[in-house]
Amino acid sequence: MSSERPPALLAALAIVGVAFFILPLAGLLARAPWQSALGELTTPEALTALRLSFVISLAATALALLLGVPLAWIYARVPFRGRDLIRALTTLPMILPPVVGGVALLFAFGRRGLFGQALDAIGIRLPFTTFGAILAATFVAMPLLVLTVEAGLRSMDRRYEDAARTLGAGRWIVFRRVTLPLIAPSVFAGAVLCWARALGEFGATITFAGNLPGTTQTLPLAVYIALETRPEVAIMLSVVLLAVSLAILVAMRDRYLRAF
């Protein structure tokens, strides 16, 4: 591949663009208390928040996969009246302020919510629970997975599915043994994006699920709370969040491009 010399204006603006992202990270790293890093991270609060964040973000990703892959399949394959509208509605959480998303979740699944009243009657409470935090994270993160998987489905060569059908495979077997493996890179990429978004989720979680260490206090909530009283802990937690996300995003890019 030959490299091309970019026009000076493009190069200059690109450098400003990079600096815009790098500088805040540099600021964070510069303020990180590296000498006491391990101590800050192994405080019980930090460990609890770390563990809870991984549980919640992974559970949200699993839930998003379970519901999002079928949804993406429907969007990509079944033309129906109002599909664009429904798709837009289910994509909305991506641009909705997460706090609004949290309030909307309360109006739906809260004790006085549309659906929550029935849940409350049978003794199920979602707000202030870990499952509530999982729901909040899924709500904001799943659209990323759905859009990525839908794009994957739309760009895959559907003739492989035809080939499978002429070999005697019914629709379900075609989906499981041909479609799913062929769009695996998209599913993987979607899951990673979804997971990263869930890991960083703040607004919907604090609004819908509240903030209680060990139950709903995820890493971003712990960072926010700690920022005012113990900024060293907050900064180190952020650095961990950054390091993990960066590693995953870099790894994913490589994996994503290396399709069959």
Binding site: D157, R159, Y160, D162, A163, A164, R165, T166, L167, G168, A169, G170, V178, P181, L182, A184, F260
Partner: peptide
Amino acid sequence: APERRPIGVVFQDYLLFPHL
């Protein structure tokens, strides 16, 4: 349905499943 027909098809480009 295609999967119920006693047929075999060799497609253009063969369409071998790349993951298998």
